[in-house]
Computed example of a mutant assay.
Amino acid sequence: MDDVMALLERLEDELESGNNLPFTSKTMINREQCLELIKEIRIRLPDDFKQAQVVVAEKNSIIADAQRQAEAILQDAESQFKLMVDQHEITKKAYEQAREIISNAQKNAREIRLGANDYADEVLGRLDAYVSRLLDDIRKDRAELKKGHHQS
């Protein structure tokens, strides 16, 4: 493309350097030189156009590839975000379940302790009643022994 630009500048110089014809707006130029420059431009333009088309195609390919990469990055980021949200929800639910399990375990332990205390109190109450009856029987038996011993 630089060659074509240089040739166009030479053509422009040739046209500007022509001699003006007196009393007209016409200019005398070197016709052969101008035609030769135009011919050279025509020869080189298709190659430059082809090269420009290749550059444009490469640019379009690079842009399309960049867009595909951007889409892939965006989709990956979206997937990562969803995964993190899902993991956050799973973690949150796990903590909630853990708190519920601990709370239930503490409640059950409290109930077991209270039940054990009640049971122990009940057993001790029965033992107390039994021992009291036994002690009453022992006292009665002793009292009878003493009565019988004094009467003999």
Rank of each mutant, 00 (worst) to 15 (best):
D13Q: 12
V131I: 11
E14Q: 06
D65H: 02
S103W: 07
I62C: 00
P46R: 08
V123H: 01
R10S: 07
G125N: 11
L127H: 05
S79Q: 06
D121R: 14
S79W: 02
K140D: 15
D128Q: 05
V54N: 12
D47M: 14
M5N: 04
M28D: 13
K50D: 12
H150F: 10
V54P: 01
E16D: 12
D121L: 09
L145R: 07
A64D: 10
V4C: 09
H149Y: 11
I90S: 08
S79N: 11
I38G: 02
Q151H: 15
L7T: 01
M1F: 08
A6S: 03
D141A: 13
N20C: 06
N104L: 09
E16G: 08
V123D: 00
E9N: 03
D128V: 00
R110T: 12
M84H: 09
R139F: 05
I102D: 07
S17M: 10
K93P: 01
K93L: 10
Q106N: 12
I73Q: 08
Q106T: 07
G115K: 09
Y95F: 11
N20G: 08
R133G: 08
K147E: 13
E9I: 06
K146H: 09
V123L: 09
R133W: 03
Y130S: 09
R133Q: 12
I63V: 06
L37D: 01
K146C: 04
Q67G: 00
